[in-house]
Simulated assay, not measured.
Amino acid sequence: MAPDENDAADDKPTYTEKGKAFDRDMSYIPDRITKVVDGAPRRPEHGPVEGELWPVEPGRYRLVAAKACPWANRSIIVRRLLGLEDVISLGMPGPTHDKRSWTFDLDPDGKDPVLGIERLQEAYLARFPDYPKGITVPAVVEVATGQVVTNDFPWITHDLFSEWRDHHRPGAPDLWPDDVREEMEAVMQRIFTEVNNGVYRCGFAGSQEAYDDAYDRLWTAMDWLEERLADRRFLMGDTVTEADVRLFTTLARFDAVYHGHFKCNRNKLSEMPVLWAYARDLFQMPGFGETIDFDQIKAHYYVVHTDINPTGIVPKGPDADAWLTPHGREVLGGEPIQPW
């Protein structure tokens, strides 16, 4: 079993024969944008420095992030929560793409209005003419040169918080609290391997055995989250952190896509009282629900993944209005994101 070629531009499946489990290619452009100290970008306090360092500079970069993609959706949420809209512009490709690239088919004349390109691929090739990997979102592009800077999605959101602090809005949330950072990284790692990526390991499994293993691991983690969130409003306690952002983008897609399309069907998210209430709580906060477009999400998965859904038929449900129903999480206290 081989993945459809279209997936090369998004989720990068790397199984190549029947019987293989889904293996996400996590090698991205390792460059990072960091705070300028003494006239040069400094070495970041956390994480690897395997590529080039680029300076934080308002107006220099454009974040390209499709609403349809959960990994890109993270960066849209974090940019919004931190109030970086006037500092880093946002380009949004449409929900579907071909085997070559995400395209700006939602923009007038099918071109990004700032970069002037039809395909995100053009920004990758402008810097790496022989770029060998999939064209993924999110990607940060230097506006003046039209060249991609990085597509390393975990570090993009991390650095929007840690390196762009001088440009955050007043009252921006502390998405990486120092006092829980070590525990939070462990929580996020489990969420990534078992949930964020776990739904893909179910959907792209190349054998019954691989699927069964992925399914069991996913639901073990979902049950763990249901228990963890029973007596705390957010994953790390009373405030929203990056961990909540990373979990939310998967939960927002669960019933609309992953439950059926990826065969993650032990039960729906809406049938898990705690996780469903938690997801609605976040959805109804500024910066979260406003970034979700269920029509784009469904169009992406059901149209692009032709190996899983060869008819290309996009389901009409579920009813998105359910996300606006009362969640009752206020009784747990905490400090939700307030309008600004």
Rank of each mutant, 00 (worst) to 15 (best):
D10M: 13
G19S: 12
F22H: 15
I29M: 10
I29V: 15
T34R: 05
T34H: 07
R43F: 15
R43D: 14
R43N: 14
P44I: 10
P44Q: 12
H46Y: 15
L53Q: 05
P55Y: 01
V64E: 00
V64L: 05
A65D: 01
A65Q: 03
A66W: 04
W71D: 06
I76Q: 09
R80Q: 14
L84F: 02
D86K: 13
S89V: 00
P93W: 00
D98H: 03
K99I: 03
F104N: 02
D112W: 08
V114H: 08
R119L: 12
A123D: 02
A123S: 13
R127Y: 07
D130C: 07
G134L: 01
T136Y: 00
V141Y: 06
E142T: 01
V143M: 08
T145Y: 04
T145S: 12
F153K: 03
P154T: 00
P154W: 00
P154I: 03
W155Y: 14
D159M: 04
D166A: 13
H167Q: 09
R169V: 14
P170D: 09
P170G: 06
A172I: 08
D174N: 12
L175D: 08
R181W: 15
E183V: 14
V187W: 13
T193H: 15
Y200H: 10
C202Y: 01
G203P: 04
R217S: 10
R217K: 15
L218Y: 06
R228C: 08
L229S: 06
R233P: 01
R233A: 00
G237S: 08
D244R: 07
V245C: 05
L247W: 01
T249Q: 07
L251Y: 06
A256F: 03
F262N: 07
C264W: 04
N265F: 11
S270I: 08
M272I: 09
V274E: 06
L275D: 03
L275W: 09
W276C: 05
R280K: 12
R280W: 01
P286G: 02
T291H: 08
T291V: 09
I297G: 03
A299P: 08
Y301G: 02
Y301N: 04
T306P: 12
T306L: 14
D307F: 06
I308L: 14
I308Y: 10
P315K: 11
P315H: 12
G317Q: 11
G317D: 11
D321C: 15
W323P: 02
L324D: 12
G333D: 06
